[in-house]
């Protein structure tokens, strides 16, 4: 149906887009079902020292069980002397069907925050075959690798059980506390694990250094190109095109 109207230029699209924005209630946020809040960790992949130190820590604490098969040809792997012969191999049916997985991509399939919290939240639980349970990954089959370094953590509230508190998002240090210290102080231990997380984050995507340095050039070049073409076409447009318009 047409309504004759003197307002000849019509509406503009802006109001349409505003209605659209108002109608799309994208304010919802996702709620996971974890027991504890994950700790944040600031990953600085330019810190080569931390990555190397993390690699050494990994060899010391983890490589007896976990392989990094995709990583062995990397420059850092070579300098740490991680070769494919040194990688452990487990048959599928070892460890009750849960053999230690390859960790080449773990920082991408989980996240650095997840790793950082997971590795620091083991606590004594007599019901588990290994004697330890974990807040982030309840009933994990991985034995606590840090009994010597971290010491023993215990539940503050002995009645706490992960299955009952799913979705609580509690802060983990409100749930467990250190009962007996290990050979490292609390800060030194956090650094030790932090180094491992840095290392594993690097391992998940070693292209990062090359990416960042190449990115600067490509984006700089494109930016320059944008300015040149825009200026050129404005200029050409001013000189040649205007008179053609009806």
């Amino acid at each position: 149906m047409i309504v004759i109207c003197k307002f000849q230029s019509g509406y503009r699209e802006f109001d349409l887009i505003i209605i659209l924005l108002l109608l799309s209630p994208l304010i919802c946020f996702s709620v996971g079902d974890s027991v504890v809040e994950l700790d944040s960790i600031n990953i600085d992949l330019m810190n080569e020292q931390r990555i190397l130190q993390g690699g050494k820590n990994f060899q010391q604490s983890c490589m007896s069980c976990h392989s990094l098969n995709s990583f062995v040809n990397d420059r850092v792997a070579k300098s740490l002397d991680m070769t494919s012969e040194k990688m452990p191999v487990w048959p599928d049916d070892s460890w009750n069907g849960h053999p230690p997985p390859d960790l080449s991509l773990i920082a991408l399939s989980m996240s650095p925050e997840w790793l950082y919290t997971y590795l620091r939240t083991y606590y004594v639980d007599a019901d588990r075959p290994t004697g330890y349970n974990n807040l982030v990954f309840p009933n994990t089959n991985m034995p606590n690798p840090f009994i010597d370094l971290q010491g023993k953590q215990v539940l503050i509230d002995p009645n706490f059980s992960p299955s009952k508190h799913l979705g609580d998002h509690a802060l983990w240090y409100r749930v467990i506390k250190l009962k007996e210290g290990g050979s490292l102080s609390a800060e030194a231990f956090d650094d030790y694990v932090g180094d491992i997380v840095h290392f594993l984050t690097y391992v998940s995507d070693p292209s990062v250094h090359e990416r960042r340095s190449m990115g600067v050039w490509v984006l700089g070049y494109l930016g320059l190109f944008i300015v040149i073409t825009y200026a050129y076409f404005r200029l050409v447009g001013k000189v040649f095109f205007k008179p053609l318009k009806h």
Partner: peptide, 25 residues
Amino acid sequence: YPYFVLKYIPIILVYLFVFFAIVFY
């Protein structure tokens, strides 16, 4: 051509800029 080709080339470059910013970072 030339009106819209020239008008759109810088915009296509802006697209590539955003695209490669994602690829690299």
